[in-house]
């Protein structure tokens, strides 16, 4: 069943159709005064973060600093956790994705997510891609969509003769690229990646990183990573988070990756990226 376009889809569609060039820097999504609570515990404190469109933004920081919580706020994934609550705004095309008239399912279509562990459906490679598109009401040529998505995910050449093979038979790196293809197939604007390479070997990791650079031509990518070298290699911007005295996650520094990794402004960033804290 085709879902009814909600406020967010309408706004996003209008924005895409607009021929007026943006007058300010082109931000894909923006957090304003975001606080996240799990019950009474404040997990993330006062985050203000503007994500530039069609760039890769890395979120780094020590364990427990709220990186994954923050990235999940970008597509309302935290709502799936009982007791989770958010204050502040997350603006997508100027619209707060937490407004009551916004459908979280549509949010997650426009702002897709790739997880730490590859999680293909136990179905064929073809069906892994076709399924999401189909339930989102895709009415075009499905074969073309599957091929285009697999090509964009740099997987087509490896699987084109085995499209009906079970996706679970693929290697870990291939499975993760299939998950990326599945995300792309529903035409998102933003792709969130939560530790997408932590379960992969170094070669598969480099393939994903190369793929990310390719995808950044068309999509905005936000990645959470524990691997600082990965953040340095792949991202355009880096946000460093740590925990404050209340154990709440706070954003310490945010800027161009080249600056963060060569001359960070904050001592806490310096200590973390040089490996002297964390």
């Amino acid at each position: 069943m085709e879902s009814k376009p909600d406020a967010l889809v309408r706004i996003a569609t209008q924005a895409r159709a607009s021929v007026t060039p943006p007058t300010t820097k082109d931000y894909a999504i923006e957090m304003r005064n975001v606080n996240v609570y799990y019950g009474s515990f404040r997990a993330v404190k006062d985050v203000n973060l503007q994500i530039e469109a069609r760039k890769i933004t890395a979120i780094i920081g020590p364990s427990g600093c709220g990186k994954s919580t923050v990235i999940r706020c970008f597509n309302r994934m935290n709502e799936l956790i009982p007791g989770a609550r958010l204050t502040g705004e997350v603006l997508f095309h100027g619209k707060n994705i937490y407004d009551p008239d916004v459908d979280p399912v549509q949010v997650r279509r426009l702002i897709g997510m790739v997880f730490q562990k590859p999680n293909p459906f136990p179905k064929s490679i073809y069906e892994n891609i076709a399924w999401g598109a189909r339930i989102n009401g895709y009415r075009g040529n499905m074969d073309e969509l599957v091929e285009e998505s697999l090509r964009q995910a740099a997987l087509w050449d490896e699987v084109k003769d085995d499209l009906h093979k079970n996706a679970l038979a693929l290697s870990g790196g291939q499975q993760q690229r299939l998950c990326i293809a599945r995300t792309i197939a529903v035409k998102p604007e933003i792709i969130l990646m939560d530790e997408p390479c932590s379960a992969l070997d170094p070669i598969a990791t480099l393939k994903i990183e190369d793929l990310m650079r390719e995808l950044a031509r068309d999509y905005t990518i936000i990645i959470v990573t524990h691997n600082m070298q990965q953040a340095a290699r792949v991202s355009d911007y880096t946000a460093f988070f740590t925990v404050d005295e209340d154990r709440a996650g706070i954003m310490v520094e945010y800027g161009p990756t080249n600056q963060i990794f060569t001359r960070p402004r904050d001592r806490r960033t310096e200590d973390y990226i040089t490996g002297r804290f964390g």
């Binding site: 060569t262 960033t269 990226i273």
Partner: peptide
Amino acid sequence: QQPMAHDLR
């Protein structure tokens, strides 16, 4: 050692 920031400089 993949030095960063001050170490790298």
